[in-house]
């Protein structure tokens, strides 16, 4: 009986050793040379594999990063400047600092501002709804609230507010990878400069209808009146197709446009509360959390 055990152990051990030797030689023979710095760079990357950099996963980015002559075009939005600095150090290069960005939802059409005109009853997907029709409200540009942006977010940084039916970005979690921007079939979400202490000003509307039509479908729509354009002292605002747009590279956060907007379509976030003077303070969002 004991001999059976002994032979079994011997046989299996011998098999193991032979396999190990074969594997070793095969591994040697088929070894592919890879720049060891790729591994090092990959190690400092966040490992989220979100694709926000434009490469398939962190490994793909690391390869491109090591091979690239000029690294200024490469940026990991998730890791930010710190990660890029560390990665550049591995190559003995210097990474230029980039302003941190954040995803911004440019629609404020809550049910009270934007009445429902029909009841969507298809599969819960903004893309499916978009391929079907313009949406369940009078505004054919606005947010559908079906959460395609939430589905694609790898960082749990965006959710649909149950009361407003609109997506809310958690700016602490948002890495500006841009997945939601690509997922939104209405092109509502935009990556904007995060701003000092999160302070930023933007037009929270993408409605390109003429003023009257826009206003009729949503009470907080941009009606393209152009008051903000005239008011802006920094030439940061442009008006195209009845829609104002604030260039975040030119905006100096003076907040003058916010005051003149007749429909409260321009939002300021993370500013200290103003002195109470106008009655429509309630229409302003408190913050984006």
């Amino acid at each position: 009986m004991s001999s059976v055990v002994l032979y079994t152990v011997l046989m299996l051990s011998a098999l193991g050793v032979i396999s190990a030797v074969v594997l070793y030689f095969v591994a040697q023979k088929f070894k592919v040379y890879e720049d060891p710095r790729i591994d090092e760079v990959e190690a400092v990357l966040p490992g989220a594999n979100c694709g926000g950099c434009g490469y398939p996963g962190c490994r793909g980015f690391a390869e491109a990063f090591v091979k690239a002559e000029d690294i200024s075009t490469l940026f990991c939005p998730v890791g930010g400047n710190d990660t890029m600095g560390n990665a550049a150090k591995i190559l003995g290069k210097e990474a230029a600092a980039v302003d941190p960005m954040v995803a911004v939802v440019r629609c404020a059409g809550t049910p009270e501002h934007r009445a429902k005109t029909n009841a969507y009853d298809g599969a819960k997907s903004c893309r499916i709804a978009t391929s079907l029709y313009s949406g369940d409200t009078g505004c054919q540009f606005g947010c559908l609230g079906l959460g395609d942006c939430v589905d694609v977010c790898n960082f749990d940084a965006i959710y649909i507010d149950e009361v407003t039916g609109l997506p809310v970005v958690d700016q602490d979690k948002c890495t500006a990878c841009g997945a939601c921007v690509k997922a939104c079939p209405k092109f509502i979400i935009e990556l904007r400069k995060k701003g000092p202490k999160g302070k930023r000003i933007f037009v929270s509307c993408v409605n390109k209808d003429k003023g009257g039509v826009a206003k009729k479908s949503c009470s907080v729509a941009c009606i393209g009146c152009g008051k903000c354009v005239k008011t802006c002292p920094h030439d940061a605002i442009t008006l195209e197709n009845n829609l104002a747009y604030i260039d975040f590279n030119k905006c100096k956060l003076c907040r003058k446009c916010v005051e003149v907007c007749p429909t409260n379509a321009i939002w300021e976030v993370h500013f200290p509360a103003r002195k109470p003077k106008v009655e429509d303070e309630t229409a302003q969002p408190v913050s984006e959390s």
Partner: peptide, 12 residues
């Protein structure tokens, strides 16, 4: 299941 909803989307 909304089979065709998703199939139509994928087809597009």
């Amino acid at each position: 299941l909304p089979l065709l909803d998703y199939i139509r989307l994928g087809k597009a």
